[in-house]
C-alpha cells in the first residue's frame, strides 16, 4: 500500500519511486553521481530515524554509511519487490539494531517530572519536546513503529517488511506504543 503522500510526481516527470529505481539501476552500474543523489535524498530521514535508535549522531552517521555501503554493493540485487525506501530502511534498521547491541545501554532515562516542570515553550514546540522525551521511554520496537508510521509515513505492511515481523505484531506494537505515549504525555503535561 503506497500512500499518496509518498508517491508524489517529481518535477522531472515520473514518480519518486521510478526515479529512485532508476538511481539504483545506475548505482548497480557503479555510477557514483547516482549514489550521491540517492544518499543526499535519504540522509536526513535516515539520520532522524536512526537518532531514535542511538541518540548519538556519530553512530547514526556510521550506520547511514554502512547502509549505503550495502546499497552500493547490492543495488543490482534490488528486484522491486518493495519500495526503494522500504528496502533501504530495512537495511538501516538491521544495521541500527546491530550497532545498538554492541554500543551498550542508551543514556539514562530523562526525569520526566523534572523536564515537565522546567519547560515552557509554545504549545506545538512543547508537544514536540514532550514527544521526544516520551518516545525515548518507549521500548525500541514500539518507538520504531511510531517513527516509521508517523514520521516516515510507511504502511503497516511496509513496516512489517522493514522490521521483519508479522503485520499483526506491527499493529500490536503500535497499539501499545499509543497507550504508553498517552500516559507519558499526560504525566509530562502535569496537572492542569
Amino acid at each position: 500500500m503506497i500512500s499518496a503522500e509518498h508517491d508524489p510526481r517529481s518535477a522531472s516527470g515520473g514518480t519518486t519511486e521510478e526515479r529512485e529505481c532508476a538511481l539504483l539501476a545506475r548505482i548497480a552500474g557503479r555510477d557514483s553521481a547516482a549514489m550521491k543523489e540517492l544518499y543526499l535524498l535519504y540522509h536526513r530521514r535516515l539520520a532522524r530515524f536512526l537518532m531514535r535508535i542511538t541518540t548519538r549522531y556519530d553512530l547514526a552517521e556510521e550506520i547511514i554509511n554502512d547502509t549505503f555501503w550495502v546499497v552500493w554493493q547490492h543495488a543490482g540485487d534490488f528486484r522491486g519487490a518493495s519500495r526503494v525506501s522500504t528496502w533501504i530502511l530495512g537495511i538501516a534498521y538491521r544495521r541500527g539494531l546491530k550497532t545498538l547491541r554492541y554500543a551498550g545501554p542508551p543514556p539514562a532515562d530523562v526525569d520526566v517530572e523534572a523536564e515537565a516542570a522546567t519547560e515552557e515553550p509554545t504549545q506545538r514546540a512543547e508537544l514536540r519536546e514532550w514527544l521526544d522525551t516520551a518516545l525515548q521511554r518507549l521500548p525500541l520496537e514500539q518507538r520504531m513503529v511510531m517513527e516509521l508510521a508517523y514520521h516516515l509515513g510507511h504502511s503497516c505492511e511496509e513496516i512489517a517488511a522493514i522490521m521483519q515481523c508479522p503485520t499483526n505484531t506491527v499493529k500490536t506494537r503500535m497499539f501499545h506504543a499509543r497507550r504508553k505515549l498517552k500516559t507519558l504525555l499526560t504525566t509530562l503535561a502535569g496537572p492542569d
Binding site: 500500500m1 509515513g153 504502511s155 497499539f175
Partner: peptide
C-alpha cells in the same frame, strides 16, 4: 482502535 494510526498516516 488498531486501524486508527493507519488512517492518520494515510496508508
Amino acid at each position: 482502535e488498531l486501524l486508527i494510526p493507519w488512517l492518520v498516516n494515510g496508508s
